[in-house]
Design a protein around this nucleic acid. Structure first.
Lengths: 183, 183
DNA sequence: CAAATAAGTTTAGATTCGATACTATATCAG
DNA sequence: CTGATATAGTATCGAATCTAAACTTATTTG
């Protein structure tokens, strides 16, 4: 097995390339740009603290100016909606329209990453290792977040915002996420 | 573990996003475009049947016109070299210069995907599953290719080209690759 | 209340991207 | 051998992204 150093990273690089290839192919068939598909995918899994221009910019590693442009395009074409935050009026919450959701559904079906469930625990290790090395904070689900407090039967509270969270909420990705196991 | 359907694909999507984020960050620091980094990475692992404009285009899923432009840019800036094939004069073999190689070295160090060796077998399954579903042929190493023939102590022959292959050769990625286990 | 910070937009210049047409070489059919 | 077809790669065009920087508006801090 280990007759070739770096064999694992070569496998990984190929999976990454293949995934990007597929995403590009899908976006092309839907007459979208690659980044549009990525944004829609993210918006389908992020929570209400993380559905902003800034958060997408951090998640995808592109400047917020660039993301802002793409978001304008996506809104114009009816894939997403913008809602101003009632408390902090600088913030606009983004959400998928029915049209946007249906694109994500087709995308998941097209890419189809399920059926590889045994890989999950290893992925977790890989993910947190990389995140720690590069000082990335955030982008995990509440369930594994040190701020999350279980206050009874399927009732949760975020220790940062002091807000109540539903069962659906805690399976979404949050930009403020900090790992339970972190020191 | 399995209290949420599609949990694995969510992990995977996050790993993909993180990897792209890092690649972009690296490219930016080196004043390169993302696609330049991807091309250089590919050229560092592909074999002599797969080091062409066409093959890169297939691997990355972009049109060869676009790749051709980027290659022109990379050659101008001294990252790669072009060598015309002696037999088929339509073909130009691409290779990394010293400058190009050193970029790839820094990239591998920056991204650092090693230390997750247990993940490899699962990745293989995932990769071939996706490839089969979408009719992707190719881009594997000779070792797992049905055309590869072991003709003695560390001596190999490619059944397609009838050429001799070295030990180094058979660990490189080939666009003609067909899986041993394929029907 | 002024200064600093934060979220988001806008603009400009460079570069990619896909589509298409194009050149040059190779292969194939008769 | 020759004309038709296929293949590898390049050139050009218009559209869109991308970064960087300046900018607007709203919030927080001292």
């Amino acid at each position: 097995m280990n007759d070739n150093p770096g064999a694992t990273s070569q496998w990984l690089e190929r999976v990454f390339a293949l995934h990007r290839n597929l995403m590009r192919q899908f976006a092309n068939e839907e007459s979208l740009q690659l980044v549009h598909a990525e944004i829609l995918q993210y918006l389908s899994v992020c929570n209400r603290y993380s559905d902003t221009t800034q958060a997408i910019s951090e998640y995808l590693g592109q400047t917020k100016g660039s993301i802002s442009q793409s978001l304008g395009n996506l809104e114009e074409n009816g894939f997403i909606r913008k809602n101003q935050d009632k408390v902090d009026k600088r913030i606009f919450h983004l959400s998928l329209t029915t049209k946007g959701s249906s694109v994500v559904k087709r995308m998941s079906k097209f890419i189809d990453l399920d059926g590889s469930d045994t890989i999950a625990p290893e992925l977790k290790v890989l993910l947190t290792t990389i995140q720690k090395k590069h000082g990335f904070r955030g982008f995990g689900v509440c369930k594994s977040c040190k701020f999350n407090e279980n206050v009874g039967q399927n009732n949760f509270v975020c220790g940062l915002t002091k807000e109540k969270l539903s069962f659906q909420d805690i399976h979404k990705i949050c930009k403020e996420h900090e790992d339970l196991t972190a020191s």
